[in-house]
């Protein structure tokens, strides 16, 4: 394989029902940062039905150009039509790097495509960099987050990776950005379309199991009751998180029993655990100390929760939580 024949960064511009997904904006920004360093170009691969209006958004988010495929076969995501279209785009244009969001769509499509292209794929990355040799260094968690590994794909192209939503920041929209939009027609082989989506049932948000949540905003007696828990709900909403609690809050009737963390509740291991107004009794710590990153907010400097926290703030959680929520919503809307 002659690596010099492969250049540019392709980004799968994931859209659902005509809305460009946040992770697509994040990846376009990241790809642009990498491309500016290596002197390459970023192309957004925009697939769907009636999605042409999103091309401008891709360019405003960092793409130099857009490859646009509009077809009724691509209206609702199913594996094979998307795999055929992506394969066609990649096999005819030889990008050096191909990035997809680590969503249920990206993680369904990327491995299928990597096998068709006979190239390597790195899963669920949290970091991307270019090495001195010009290869992509892809960093990802493994072993349930206990280990971080940096993966290389030296002798195969494209270097493919799915990237976890939220790890890169989108560039601010640049409405003045200009770029080419090239329409591509795919020679579909419908004989291979062997799955059909026949129904959809939206999730009830509150039914998500706290043990499965990646981010938990957890409150204790120090939140001062139901009103304090509403502040937590609202922050959780901004973070896409779930609310959990200490036993004291459950005993007070402020939180549901199924939300209790600890020895007699659930053991949780989210990437982020925010403990607000929780003292950190051993029975509570037993259920959360293996969390990836623990932020504790407590007005008592000597609260035992600080012994397991990565970041400890001495202060009033009822002020800090809403302030944090405001700032997160602000950065998200930029």
């Amino acid at each position: 394989m002659d690596k010099t024949e492969y250049k540019d960064i392709f980004v799968f511009a994931e859209q659902r029902e005509g809305v460009l997904q946040e992770v697509a904006a994040e990846l376009l920004g990241k790809a642009r940062e990498l491309a500016d360093k290596s002197g390459e170009r970023v192309r957004a691969l925009l697939l769907g039905e009636n999605v042409a209006p999103l091309a401008a958004e891709c360019i405003a988010r960092g793409a130099h150009a857009v490859l646009l495929v509009e077809a009724p076969e691509l209206a609702v995501y199913t594996t094979e039509p998307y795999a055929q279209a992506m394969y066609h785009l990649v096999a005819t244009r030889h990008p050096s790097i191909l990035l997809l969001g680590a969503t249920t769509i990206g993680r369904d499509l990327a491995p299928r495509l990597s096998a068709r292209l006979a190239t390597g794929l790195t899963a669920d990355c949290t970091g991307l960099e270019i090495s001195d040799d010009g290869d992509l260094l892809m960093t990802r968690p493994a072993f349930g987050g206990n280990l971080m590994a940096t993966i290389l794909c030296k002798e195969h192209r494209p270097q493919m990776s799915t990237v976890r939503p939220g790890v890169a920041r989108p560039r601010p929209l640049d409405p003045g950005a200009r770029g080419d939009v090239e329409r591509v027609t795919i020679p579909f082989n419908p004989v291979k379309f062997r799955t059909r989506v026949t129904g959809f049932e939206p999730a009830e948000r509150s039914r998500v199991d706290i043990a499965a949540a990646r981010v938990l905003v957890s409150g204790g007696r120090g939140m001062g009751g139901a009103e304090g828990f509403r502040l937590l709900e609202s922050l959780a909403d901004a973070l896409g998180a779930e609310v959990s609690s200490s036993r004291a809050a459950v005993d007070d009737g402020v939180a549901a029993r199924e939300r209790q963390v600890g020895q007699t509740g659930k053991t949780v291991r989210p990437d982020l655990y925010i403990a607000a107004g929780i003292s950190g009794a051993v029975q509570h710590l037993a259920g959360m100390e293996e969390s990836g990153y623990i932020v504790a907010i407590n007005k008592d400097r000597t609260a035992p929760v600080f012994q397991v926290a990565d970041l400890g703030i001495v202060g009033d959680a009822r002020q800090i939580i809403p302030a944090l929520e405001r700032r997160i919503r602000l950065t998200r809307s930029k």
Partner: peptide
């Protein structure tokens, strides 16, 4: 195998943190 684990590392040891007392916006 096209991919190789180039290096691996752990999250690092956890020490009890030094809690910080700050004005609200700085804490944020």
């Amino acid at each position: 195998s096209p991919t190789r684990v180039f290096k691996s590392f752990s999250r690092g040891a956890k020490n009890a943190c030094e809690p910080r007392e700050l004005p609200v916006e700085e804490a944020v």
